[in-house]
Nucleic acid binder design. Structure first.
Length: 472
RNA sequence: CGGGGCGUAGCUCAGCCUGGUAGAGCGCCAGCUUUGGGAGCUGGAUGCCGGAGGUUCGAAUCCUCUCGCCCCGACCA
């Protein structure tokens, strides 16, 4: 390794000659890092772009989270990407906790696999077909059942290797006829999809139940009330399926459920994934909830005065589909008796990029986004109201340095702008806490801490603010 | 895929009907004054008027074609 390189990694202050350093030292977050708005990339829009019709789309554009590249295809700007990564992380943690194993499959897949399953024709124009230079038919994956089944059958030959549950978080492309609503219905979208493989129906159901509860936990951690609803299985096929629906005016799905769902707590609970989950599953699904596709007004068990008809956003769906792919694709294992058995499969999807929009739909006000802390791009927005004032700069710089050092995620508005503009910007991007440093407060030795949700403010000493925010 | 709408400055939009050579507000740049909820004044920069073809002395404006985007419906994580 070269000396110059090492210097960079050691984070030597500029202007000082690099000290010899033989041991690698990790680069710490630097107090003068790029999370100052003066250095950040946050292109805010003051007005609503005309193409955006729903609130999440408008706010994502206005808050500088995304930019459209073409219909249904978006770039994620720094602020948006931070949220996407946080959502992704929660999804990953809950998958891991439920025993799923992460891998990563490619976006581009060979057509042969899809011809084998019979879906190459069935999928129609939604599948983006590509021809490579050798005239080989390829496609941009809209989902991965074929590919995962191929990987599975290549390597898993015995019932002793079951069960398996494999997932990845990867970009998908579905050439929707009508992309809309920003990231809620993009053509390109980030999805967590996983696939379970079991020897028999009992095992497959257990896998299904595990994902059922992993999903409830995942959405609850994002502050979402996602109701599991009985759903049609669609082109993926199978016979047991639930959609996880967040109720919202702007949702695309017509749904029906028992009023009790709305009165229940956010659906979070501890789960022992090794236990028999069926009783718990039956309890959770005893309360009526169904998507419009399968709801039958005549057969509905819920009396009319308890039935809620609403619109909802589908943030996830789980399927048990038996041997639909394993049989035609010959994903078989040797059973205990040595005879080949096609494996029982399920697949499970969460729209990761869609969730970002869904969270905004569920949590915003007139002024902008209100991020739940778990997915907020930063925890704290530190605002210096008077960029030209030495005292304010010193106080705000100090808070920024100490919070950052303590690992608190801070976005520091150090720009020279009017107070109103700064408040409006902070409200728009919706960080959970706003820490305001101004001359008026400093005269009294205080700073102001405002919670974005609810808008409660309190004046307190900088030390107290640090303690409260976890930087003390 | 059916139906509708819109493409003019970074954003929101006017101008088009009735052709005469490009506008406003916000934003951006410079300066000064301001500063606790989107500040004021002064000066400045920015457009292949989505693209191609046509009509015309002359096209943002009229005609034809085309591309893109949005909305409603049917379909979907």
């Amino acid at each position: 390794m070269q000396a110059g390189r090492r210097t960079l990694e050691a984070g030597a202050p500029h202007g000082h000659p690099p000290r010899p350093c033989l041991k690698f030292r990790p680069l710490l977050r630097q107090p003068r890092g790029p999370m100052r708005l003066s250095a950040y990339f946050l292109p805010l829009l003051r007005e609503n772009p005309s193409e955006a019709q729903i609130v999440s789309h408008r706010l994502m554009l206005r808050a500088g989270m995304i930019r459209q590249s073409s219909a249904g295809i978006y770039s994620w700007l720094p602020l948006g990407l931070r949220v996407l990564k946080k959502v992704e992380r929660i999804v990953r943690e809950e998958q891991d906790a439920a025993g799923a194993l992460e891998l990563l499959m490619p976006t581009i897949q060979p057509a042969e696999l899809w011809q084998e399953s019979g879906r190459y024709e069935d999928y129609g124009k939604e599948m983006l077909r590509i021809t490579d230079r050798h005239e080989r038919a390829m496609l941009y994956g809209p989902t991965n059942e074929e590919l995962i089944t191929d990987i599975f059958r290549d390597s898993i030959k015995s019932y002793r290797d079951l069960p398996k549950n494999l997932y990845h978080i990867q970009w998908k492309f579905r050439d929707e006829v009508r992309p809309r609503f920003g990231v809620m219905r993009g053509r390109e979208f980030l999805m967590k999809d996983n696939y379970s493989f079991d020897l028999d129906v009992k095992g497959a159901k257990h896998s299904y139940f595990k994902m059922f509860f992993a999903y409830l936990r995942t959405f609850a951690r994002m502050g979402l009330r996602a109701i599991p609803m009985r759903a049609e299985t669609g082109p993926i096929g199978g016979d047991l399926s639930h959609e996880f629906i967040v109720l919202a005016e702007t949702g695309e799905s017509q749904v029906f459920c028992d009023r009790a769902w709305l009165e229940s707590e956010i659906l979070d609970m501890a789960v022992d994934y090794d236990s028999d989950l069926e009783p718990q599953f039956l309890r959770w699904t005893s309360l009526y909830a169904a998507t419009g596709d399968i709801h039958d007004a005549k057969a509905c068990p819920v009396p009319e005065d308890r039935l809620v008809t609403a619109r909802g956003i589908e943030v996830g769906q789980i399927f048990y589909f038996g041997t639909k792919y394993s049989a035609p694709m010959k994903a078989v294992v040797a059973g205990p008796d040595g005879e080949p058995v096609p494996v029982e499969m399920g697949s499970y999807g969460i729209g990761v990029s869609r969730l970002v929009g869904a969270i905004i739909e569920a949590s915003h006000d007139e002024a902008g986004i209100i991020w739940p802390e778990s997915v907020a791009p930063f925890k704290v927005g530190l605002v210096n109201l008077r960029a030209g004032d030495r005292r304010c700069v010193a106080a705000a710089d100090d808070l920024y340095a100490r919070l950052t050092r303590a690992g608190v995620e801070v976005l520091y508005d150090d720009r020279d702008d009017s107070p109103g503009a700064k408040f409006a910007a902070m409200d728009l991007i919706g960080l959970p806490y706003q820490l305001v440093v101004g001359p008026r407060g400093l005269d009294k030795g205080v700073v102001e801490l405002k919670k974005r949700a609810g808008g409660a403010r309190q004046e307190l000493s900088p030390e107290a603010a640090l303690t409260l925010l976890g930087g003390g």
